[in-house]
Every structure is written in structure tokens, then in C-alpha cells.
Design a protein around this nucleic acid. Structure first.
Lengths: 244, 244
DNA sequence: CGAACGTTTGACGGGAATCAAGATAGGTGG
DNA sequence: CCACCTATCTTGATTCCCGTCAAACGTTCG
């Protein structure tokens, strides 16, 4: 099969990284709750999915057959109103989980922002492990509680912050994520489009763009390119996130 | 002790209802996951709390020493910005749980809207039961997932709905709660103040009040008193909740 | 009855959405 | 390699909705 010779090195590397024992985001994921033996059990249930940017993993309302761990890349979760208005309820990064809930259909759509690699489980198989691996269930419970706290923070942002505070809070949350992953707090990558940011913050694209420009004018951030931000004064930003 | 003769019937009834086996909201709470024997185990950890309207159960940032089940009454969860802006992140009804999270301090404040009765647990004691009573942990996990879905729905509301749609969605969620508790979908009780509703929906009191008045003018609702709403056309309201 | 609080209504202004156009970047094919 | 095309981002002008400020009304409780 000559075609295999044409497989590019990146794809080959991606295949290599599928071994759970060598997963470099294991500590950030639900799998951190598992020992080597338990990890094998989980691995036996998993299949792997790759998505190019813009691809839809599932739509709101689809039958909830699978749950996923984000292994690499960034995803967005979206909810839509009948007339087309969109709300991005969150961005998912490596280690994040999606698909577990109490209902039999997804309550949001999931789409790839970048190239994405996902570990896929059948919902019933994953849930079937809870009895045998209580630590897995407790880990997912803990992750759900973290998500809930983040959602409440987002509710505060959407309900009570002005556009400038919203954008700054968003940048700071990305910065905090960098630090969690042992990266410097700045510069930041913005893999998502301005529209995604707007739909995440409850604003329009124009307002997001204007707010970025204004922050740049004020010397609080630098924008070497549209998808890269340098925070000039982290402490000042922390203050401005709550009252500007 | 003559004073006991003066105990009013309601208070006596309340005391009587503290027995977990006779708890009438057990099916709505985390305790639905327990059999009679397990219920006793949980009951041995519980103490009971009563709060009058307006009382603070705990503030955002307080040490997370206790978790609670709402047994009767309504509570509100609040987050504050340094300059005093307030966001009500949710209202809690009988059966709802509060206080479990991954962090050692509360991420929101909790206050009584009405007279409230709560079952109180020490966090470490409750969490200590998870190993022995996996069904309890799974039940709380499921409840957390429901809360998460509700939070995402609220994020959609706050980010993308206009005041009219927000108020209608709020009324419909109360109506749905009525139905869950085997009550008719209308009339609705509004035990909370207009300010609470405003801070829940990301509006001002004036806008909430005006929106109610407008819905009344339009004949879509009736307001026999400020804390009581009759829904005149449920189907129409369902439509208007998403696009008005 | 009167004070305090909560709700409603009115007048007005500011800020974000809308509408419109220009600038920039990324990708394609000649 | 460059010209072109398209998608995205940015900037500008205008509109209008909701927040702000102010006052009246209603209700509860001492």
C-alpha cells in the first residue's frame, strides 16, 4: 500500500500520542483519578476522533450517545435561539470533558475551533465504570463542580459587567489557564474568532473589536496580531476586570 | 414548663417534619438515592437550621465548613462586585442542595428569601460518606449536572435575550417548577423581591417592573398582587420566551 | 395614623447595537 | 511570485433601548 508512505509525520505523531499511558494531559483530565491498571480499563473503551476547524462534533438536541475528553485543540460549546442568536457557553481546552449530563440529549452544540483531537466513549460504557471505579465518578463530580463555579462566574460577567470588564475578564481567564498549564501568563493565544468571543461575552463583534482597540490605545495590552495578546500590566487588569 | 403550651402548631409541625423518614421533599433531594438504612446514617450527621427572611446563611469567600439541603422556603445565591453590583446566580427551592464544590471557600453568598428550613452537614462528614454510599455521590453528581445545564440556560438568557424574553423565561421556569412539584402551572408565587429578579436577570428593578406592567397591558399575564402571577396563554409565552 | 419599604411610572441621556464601509490577512490560481 | 478573492477584523455614523434619576403610589407594621 504505497499510500501509507505518504502519511505525514504529524499524523504519525498524533497516532503515537493516543496511548493513555503517554497522554501528556492526563493530569488535567478525568484520567488523573486512575492508576495504571484502571487506565487500561478506560483505554479499552476509547476511540479517537480528529476534527478540522469549524467541524461540528454534535448539535444541541442530538442523542447523547458519546462523551468526550478533549486531548488537543480548542472547542466551543454553543446554544442557539430559534432566530439564530447564538451564545457560546464555554471554550474547552485539553483535559476538559464534555457529554456527561443527566439527560439523553445534548443541551448544547459542540464545534471545533482549531484542529481538535478527542477521546470518545460510549456514554453507557463510561457510566458503567462508575460502580467499579468510584474515583472516576468522584473526579468527574469534582470537575462538574469546577465547571459550575466557572458558569456562575460567567453569569456574573454577563449580568453585571460592562464590555470593557467583560473583555478584560476573558483575557485574564486565558492568562490563568496559561499559568495552570505551566506557561507564562502572557502572551495569550486567541484561537477563536472575534465572533466567538462576542457570542461568549454577550456582545457584538464590533463592540469586542472596539474594546480591544481601546485597550491597546490605553497601553494596557498589545496586539501583535489579531490572535495574539500581550498583557502589559497584569495587576491593573485585575482591578479593571471588576470595576472600570 | 408552661411555655411549651404556647408553642404554635406550625412550629410543632416543623419539628415533626425533621424526621428524615417523613421528609416530604426527600424525593426531590439527594436523599432520594438512599434506602431506609442509609437514610439513618445520613440523619445521624444532620443538624437543623431555621432562617427568617433576609438572613445570611454564609457569605462568598467564607470557609466552606457546611453543606445544606433546603427543606422548606426559598433562598437566593448572590455574587458581588467590589463596587456593590450584585448578581443573583440562582434561587434554591426545597430539595435543592448547596455547599458542595471543589474549593475550601464558598464561591457565592447564600441568603434566605422567605422563612427557610435547612438540613446542615459538615462538609467532611458528608464527603466521607461517598465511599460507603456511592449512590449518594452519584445522585449529587447528577444534581450538579442538572445545575450545570440550568446555568448554561441562564448564560444564554443573560447573553442574548432582551428584557421581555428574560422575564417570560423566568416566569416559565417557575411554572415548570410548579409542575415538577405537582402544582398547576399557574398561578405563580414570586416570593422574591423585584430587586432579586432584576439581579437574577441582569436588569434593573425599573425595567423588571415596566416589563411586568407591559405584559399585563398586553393581556399575557395577570398580576393580582406584586407577588402573584397568572399566566394567561402558556403557549404564546413559550414562543415569546425565545423570540419577541 | 404615619413611617419605612417596596413597587410602579415618568423623563431623560448614554452606551452598545445596528448599519455601512474600509483595512488586513490568508488562500488560490494564474 | 504576484494578483485576486474572500473572510475576518476594524473603524465610523446613527439609532434606540435600557439604565439612571426622580417622584408618586401602595402595602405592611409598629
Amino acid at each position: 500500500m504505497p499510500s501509507t508512505y505518504r502519511m505525514n509525520p504529524c499524523a504519525a505523531a498524533a497516532v503515537g500520542s493516543h496511548a493513555c499511558t503517554q497522554c501528556d494531559i492526563r493530569k488535567d483530565s478525568m484520567c488523573s483519578a486512575l492508576n495504571e491498571e484502571e487506565l487500561q480499563q478506560v483505554e479499552s473503551l476509547v476511540t479517537h476522533i480528529n476534527l478540522p476547524p469549524g467541524d461540528i462534533l454534535f448539535d444541541e438536541g442530538d442523542h447523547r450517545g458519546f462523551a468526550y475528553n478533549v486531548s488537543s485543540g480548542v472547542m466551543r460549546l454553543c446554544k442557539l435561539l430559534p432566530d439564530g442568536r447564538r451564545q457560546v457557553t464555554g471554550f474547552l481546552y485539553p483535559g476538559d470533558h464534555l457529554g456527561l449530563s443527566a439527560h439523553d440529549s445534548y443541551s448544547y452544540g459542540a464545534e471545533a475551533v482549531t484542529d481538535v483531537h478527542l477521546c470518545r466513549f460510549r456514554v453507557n460504557e463510561l457510566e458503567g465504570l462508575f460502580e467499579e471505579l468510584p474515583n472516576l465518578a468522584l473526579r468527574l463530580f469534582s470537575m462538574a463542580n469546577d465547571e459550575l463555579a466557572a458558569a456562575q462566574e460567567q453569569i456574573l460577567l454577563l449580568g453585571r459587567k460592562n464590555p470593557r470588564e467583560k473583555v478584560i475578564s476573558f483575557l485574564l481567564s486565558l492568562s490563568a489557564r496559561n499559568v495552570d498549564r505551566d506557561l507564562p501568563p502572557s502572551p495569550l493565544d486567541l484561537p477563536m474568532r472575534r465572533t466567538d468571543i462576542a457570542d461568549f461575552l454577550g456582545l457584538t463583534v464590533e463592540t469586542v473589536s472596539r474594546t480591544f482597540s481601546r485597550l491597546k490605545e490605553d497601553g494596557i495590552i498589545e496586539l501583535p496580531s489579531a490572535d495574539r495578546v500581550i498583557l502589559k500590566d497584569h495587576e491593573l487588569l485585575e482591578e479593571l476586570a471588576d470595576e472600570s
